Amino acid sequence: MKKIFFVIGLLGFSPIFAQDTEINITPDNSWFKAGVIAGVPVGDAKDVASFNLGLDLRAQYLFNPNFGIGVASGYTNFFGKDPVDDFGVIPLAGFARYYFAPEGLFLGADLGYGFLTNLDNNSGGLYVNPQIGYHNRDWNLYAFYQNTYAENDFDLQTLGLGATYNIRFN
């Protein structure tokens, strides 16, 4: 698994280091995103949880007006069905987004590791989170499919909606 992350990292970030341009962080190209998500568990997760709510935290840098990269984290709480207790996932991921216009449709995806909480014999696994949504200067509204390919053949999947607010640097 470590080799897979290393290869993905080299392939994904090698164009960044190959550039000769200087990166200047400004309020126009970099900001934090903070918001909430809500979803319905599917797959293995629907048998043990009824719904989920969470916090979405991101830091983003725009290379140009259409393409951004960053880091994503947060917490998603899955409300367990009897007799299962609530459990959660804490993602640590990189993300990329493509914005078709300054306001309107975007496509994005997170890729990283999802740390599971309050589950016995399962610490986490590969985390993926593709998204499609609408954005403007201040808000992002999106639909997502989140999957953590966890240990012991347990896939923690959910379909949901999210909203984040852009917090600009001053």
Rank of each mutant, 00 (worst) to 15 (best):
F115G: 00
Q60Y: 12
K2T: 07
P91W: 00
K33N: 15
V71E: 12
R58D: 13
F87S: 00
G114L: 00
V40H: 10
Q157I: 08
R168K: 14
G54V: 07
K33G: 14
V84Y: 02
F32A: 14
N129S: 10
L55D: 04
D153E: 15
I132W: 03
L116V: 13
G74N: 01
G160W: 03
P102I: 07
A18M: 15
V128Q: 03
P15I: 02
L159M: 14
A96K: 01
G94V: 03
T158G: 07
N140I: 01
V89E: 05
G114I: 01
F67M: 12
A34H: 11
F13P: 06
G162Y: 03
K81T: 09
V7H: 03
A101I: 08
Y134C: 01
I69M: 14
G9S: 10
Y127P: 04
T164R: 03
I90Y: 02
F6C: 06
V84N: 08
L10F: 00
Q19H: 13
L159N: 09
T76G: 02
F17I: 15
Y61T: 12
F95C: 07
V48D: 01
V42Y: 04
D82Q: 07
Y75I: 10
Q146F: 02
T76L: 07
V36K: 08
F106T: 02
Q131A: 00
S123K: 12
V42T: 12
D44W: 07
D82K: 09
V84L: 04
I25P: 12
E103C: 09
A101C: 05
D120E: 13
N64V: 13
T26Q: 14
P27D: 12
I16A: 11
L105P: 02
G125T: 03
L55N: 04
L111H: 04
A49E: 04
D138F: 05
K3Y: 02
N118G: 02
L126D: 00
N170R: 10
P41E: 03
F169A: 13
T148V: 14
G35V: 13
G108L: 00
L53E: 09
T76Y: 06
N140E: 15
Y99E: 14
P41C: 01
Q60T: 14
I4K: 07
L111K: 05
V84I: 04
A143K: 08
F78E: 06
F169T: 06
T26E: 15
N136D: 15
F63Y: 12
